[in-house]
Write a protein that binds this DNA or RNA. Structure first.
Length: 175
DNA sequence: TGCACGATCTCG
DNA sequence: GAGATCGTGCAT
């Protein structure tokens, strides 16, 4: 096992979002089944100033985990139906997170949450110590495409147009 | 205590 | 193009 370190998660969300591409998301279930997927698409949400970030509304029951130091899981229910998986990044009291939008063969944040059977019990889960979900290191990747984030039309152009969505093209593992 | 809405997906 | 479906946040 080669689990990503606390140092990795303490970087800012934009950096972590790009570096997470190609890393291995590991999910182990109660029956011992383990799923391992390469992360293929992410989005960064950076601080209270970022109008697209849930923390732009300040610290609430839902967003408080983003105020902890990097390495925690932030999950939330969207449209009453899908649990979206995020990774908290940065230092304590600097609310940031990276949304996992896609993993191998599963494109779409809602589908990722469903495939990994996310639920509220994962809120605040520690990726550094958890046995049921964590992320393993993997070689750096190339051919990363950037694009604006999705589903945040409510944000002003300054934030809506930032290229904080990162997509790993297929066959782009370095070496 | 109530109500509007959302970092989505699927079907038609 | 619209419906499914419900916790959260803020107004009442």
């Amino acid at each position: 096992m080669n689990r990503l370190s606390e140092i990795f998660y303490k970087q800012d969300a934009v950096t972590v979002a790009e570096k997470l591409l190609g890393k291995i998301l590991v999910r182990t279930f109660d029956d011992g089944t383990t799923l391992r997927y390469r992360i293929t698409e992410t989005e960064a949400y950076l601080g209270e100033e970022d109008e697209a970030c849930h923390a732009s509304k300040g610290k609430t029951e839902r967003t408080k985990v983003m105020y902890s130091e990097g390495g925690k899981v932030y999950v939330y229910l969207i449209y009453g139906m899908y649990w979206l998986l995020n990774v908290v990044t940065g230092e304590e009291n600097n609310p940031q997170a990276v949304l996992i939008r896609g993993i191998e063969n599963i494109v779409g944040s809602g589908k990722v949450g469903r495939a990994l059977q996310m639920n509220k019990s994962f809120y605040g889960e520690d990726l550094l110590t958890s046995t049921r979900i964590y992320i393993e290191n993997a070689p750096e990747t190339k051919k990363v495409t950037v694009a604006p984030r999705v589903g945040i039309d409510y944000a002003s152009p300054e934030w809506r147009l930032k290229n904080w969505r990162f997509i790993l093209e297929s066959d782009s593992t370095k070496e």
